[in-house]
């Protein structure tokens, strides 16, 4: 129908978006699936489940899970401290939280590798304790913790800010201790956001490449992440192998994207429900 919207530009704006998205994102990604479909299923399966590939999944997922877990714990503490406690230089610290978003991953990679190397500022204290970080799977966890931190903190901060003091006062007036208030009243409220932040950090960590390769040591079967394995397949002109692994990564990306969406929908709905009750 003519004149359906008063505001102009809907067709143009949506058209530009869809064409751009299709040409730049959707068609290329389906190109990967298309390429993979030209290979036999058996071939793909063999590559995707080879010993080296399976080891790389274990390293990637294990380190990502551990890093996201560390971030969930420390990210919650950092977010809590930043929202609730006044201290000098708070704004500076708050801005610094975004550093991993702003600092190129290659810079983070070489810096962390240098810091945790045997003669580095941190490595020289850790290695005598038997903690070898650089060029081991532990180094991967350190790099992934670095890049994942802002996801958890930035997801939690607004939620903690929105907690009404009345809720805590009510819990206290009903006789709850501070720990009980935290565990039974506050934590359930921030839990969806914590889970969302965890998932975001985890999904970013799985695909991460730049910050990891410098500190990982990249030993096949031990400290080789999947993205690096894709690169080494490419460097050996093994396009089939690279494609098979990339397909696995892409499917995981989609699953993570859906998971994040579902989580955000869940926490938004919970929030909405709360608002309705308070009306």
């Amino acid at each position: 129908m003519k004149n359906k919207h008063v505001l102009p530009g809907f067709g143009l704006a949506l058209g530009i978006t869809l064409v751009y998205l299709s040409l730049l994102v959707l068609l290329p990604l389906s190109g990967l699936a298309f390429k993979a479909s030209s290979l036999s299923a058996g071939e793909l399966w063999n590559v995707a489940t080879s010993e080296r590939a399976l080891a790389s999944y274990r390293v990637t997922f294990g380190a990502s899970l551990l890093a996201a877990g560390i971030n969930a714990v420390f990210g919650l503490i950092v977010a809590w401290v930043l929202v609730r406690y006044p201290f000098p230089g708070k704004r500076l610290v708050d801005s610094l939280v975004d550093l991993p978003f702003a600092l190129p991953t290659a810079v983070a990679g070489i810096t962390l590798a240098t810091l945790y190397a045997g003669n580095g500022w941190l490595g020289r204290f850790l290695e005598p304790l038997g903690l070898k970080v650089a060029f081991t799977p532990l180094g991967i966890v350190v790099a992934l913790t670095f890049i994942g931190l802002p996801f958890v903190v930035r997801t939690l901060q607004p939620v903690i800010e929105d907690i009404e003091p009345e809720i805590e006062e009510a819990a206290a007036s009903l006789g709850a201790s501070r720990l009980q208030t935290f565990l039974r009243v506050l934590l359930p409220g921030v839990f969806p956001a914590l889970l969302t932040g965890f998932t975001l950090a985890f999904s970013r960590a799985i695909g991460e490449y730049g910050s990891v390769i410098f500190i990982a040591g990249n030993m096949p079967l031990i400290s080789e992440i999947t993205p690096l394995l894709i690169i080494s397949k490419l460097e050996q002109y093994d396009v089939i192998g690279a494609t098979a692994l990339a397909l696995v990564m892409l499917v995981i990306s989609f699953v993570m994207l859906l998971a994040v969406n579902a989580l955000q929908w869940w926490s938004a709905n919970r929030h909405h429900g709360r608002e309705k009750v308070s009306l």
Partner: peptide, 23 residues
């Protein structure tokens, strides 16, 4: 559409590079 706009954040940079290499 909103989800698809987020897609580039979810895909590993290495996979992105490979995708265009394959094309």
């Amino acid at each position: 559409l909103i989800t698809l706009i987020d897609l580039p954040f979810a895909v590993s940079p290495v996979v992105v590079g490979l995708v265009f290499l394959l094309i």
